[in-house]
């Protein structure tokens, strides 16, 4: 039955692991575990990028894999850890919607994402064509996570997970973006997180909490 080369199967495996981790993040209440899951997702991304680089003979992908490893598996999680330590955050108990319902919406989104990917991936004659659906699904799930969470830190993690999905789409369908673009995005993400970290302190100064519903007062009346 398996007609696909082994490398393709491994790419699929890691793609599924990325999706699995997205779901795990959707269902996770603890911020610390959320960061761990994010780091794991980065690691799965590194693995799949490396395999794509190896099978597609694309040496520049090795660099982007290394960059991902450095940034998403090591640096960003460390920054986030420091952030939650300094802000003394442990729990993120408030979710906007209860978790099984969120998961159910997530399932529907996955089907929808694959429906979207179907016409596109039929055009691409590529070993990793069905991973496009997963990439879109990962982006959507991250978006969903941002919508359903109330704490600012989880929003940032959702944002980063969304970037993971985009990166995954890029590597799996077109052998990655040009190196310059990738470097630029990496820098953007890093700076973005740092700025958001500063924002957190400001938000907490102002409201004594990081719960985002306090921001609801900030509107024009």
């Amino acid at each position: 039955m398996p007609t696909m080369p082994l490398s393709g199967q491994y790419i699929h495996l890691f793609a599924s692991v990325v999706l699995l981790l997205s779901f795990a993040m959707l269902a996770q209440r603890r911020i610390r575990t959320l960061i761990d899951l994010f780091a794991l997702q980065g690691a799965a991304l590194v693995c799949s990028t490396t395999i794509v680089a190896w099978t597609g003979d694309q040496p520049h992908l090795y660099y982007s894999a290394a960059l991902t490893l450095l940034l998403k598996v090591i640096v960003l999680p460390l920054i986030l850890y420091r952030l939650i330590d300094r802000l003394q955050l442990r729990w993120d108990t408030e979710t906007g919607l209860h978790i099984p319902a969120t998961m159910l919406i997530g399932l529907v989104l996955v089907v929808f994402a694959f429906g979207l990917a179907q016409p596109v991936s039929r055009l691409a004659g590529h070993v990793t064509q069905s991973t496009l659906g997963i990439a879109i699904a990962v982006v959507m799930l991250a978006f969903l996570m941002m919508i359903t969470r109330r704490k600012a830190v989880t929003q940032v993690i959702g944002f980063l997970a969304m970037e993971n999905g985009l990166f995954f789409a890029a590597t799996s369908t077109t052998y990655g973006m040009p190196m310059v673009v990738e470097l630029g995005i990496a820098l953007d993400v890093l700076v973005g997180v740092l700025i958001l970290g500063i924002f957190f302190f400001q938000i907490r100064e102002q409201f004594d909490s990081l719960d985002l519903h306090h921001l609801e007062r900030l509107r024009e009346e």
Partner: peptide, 12 residues
């Protein structure tokens, strides 16, 4: 259920 979907969606 997701596993079942992945089985059908990802052409293994």
């Amino acid at each position: 259920v997701l596993g079942l979907l992945v089985r059908l969606l990802v052409q293994e």
